[in-house]
Design a protein around this nucleic acid. Structure first.
Lengths: 151, 151
DNA sequence: TTAAATATCTTAGACACTAAGATATTTAGC
DNA sequence: GCTAAATATCTTAGTGTCTAAGATATTTAA
């Protein structure tokens, strides 16, 4: 493999990350979220219900910040608080998938349609290459993040 | 193209975005940056010097926030302010590439090495597929972000 | 020459974050 | 069973970054 090619791909991956973040920020602004709340809703959608403490670990925010986060989401009826029946200290955050989706789906509609068209423009064999690339990259990024957070 | 495959890729792309953001956040924490400053330094590295106003447009922050941002970076000697010689109202932000790199490179070292190994594990033809996929995805994300920001 | 436009900075107030401690509940040792 | 320690979340005080509005400095255009 040409070292020039490797360099080119590295640059592309970096650009991809920035474009991705920019798009997420733009969506957040449109949905009326300040800062990072959009991302945390994403976690909740992706992983489903979790306790306040789990969300704290996942996001790196203190439990105090998480309390405020849940308050904001609850006020917008995007999540519900529920005490764990086996451990009443724990607060389970139940995302209201429907309301969250209804909020963001219109904003992602065009993106989704264009992305699907892009995927469909590849052959099955080609998209399998992309699939492998993405999967392994995700693994590498998670490993890096965990290492940096001493986990 | 199988609709199941398309769905799978969509999910993967989403997961990729979250892992990428998580890793960037972890790096930022380690480098001693609160919040979003890491990302803005990334813009400066990627695009090179720019005026305060350009950074304001790019980030969506007000000019007041940009003033504070540059102050923080300048205090850490990561950028320098310079007046544009043709228009002395403009403040050109000159990133100190060396100091910024020195700050982040150790944190990205392992990631970079793993990523390069991953890229090298594909054939030239395969990586060309990945290259096309990433390039077109970047285009789609930029278009989406611009549309949402009414640009 | 001067008014309008432009680019950045300043300031006051809003909001989310951390750190530390309070509260409520569970676990473990006796 | 009782009590101390541990755990999970919430509360509070203080900090930092953001926006909105207006100030300042410079350029452009009439």
């Amino acid at each position: 493999m040409d070292s020039e090619t490797i360099k080119q791909i590295r640059k592309l991956v970096q650009e991809y990350a920035y474009s991705s973040i920019q798009m997420h920020e733009a969506v957040a602004r449109r949905a009326g979220f300040s800062g990072t709340d959009h991302r945390y809703l994403g976690f909740l959608i992706e992983r489903g219900q979790m306790t306040a403490g789990e969300l704290s670990n996942l996001t790196g925010l203190t439990t105090g910040a998480i309390t405020g986060l849940i308050d904001r989401f609850e006020k917008k009826k995007l999540v519900k608080r529920r005490f764990d029946k086996d451990d009443r200290r724990k607060v389970i955050i139940e995302p209201n998938i429907k309301s969250i989706m209804a909020l963001f789906e219109p904003l992602y509609k065009d993106f989704r349609s264009m992305s699907e068209k892009l995927t469909a423009s590849f052959t099955e064999k080609e998209i399998e290459i992309v699939r492998i690339y993405l999967t392994k990259s995700i693994g590498i990024m998670n490993e890096t993040a965990n290492k940096l957070d001493n986990r």
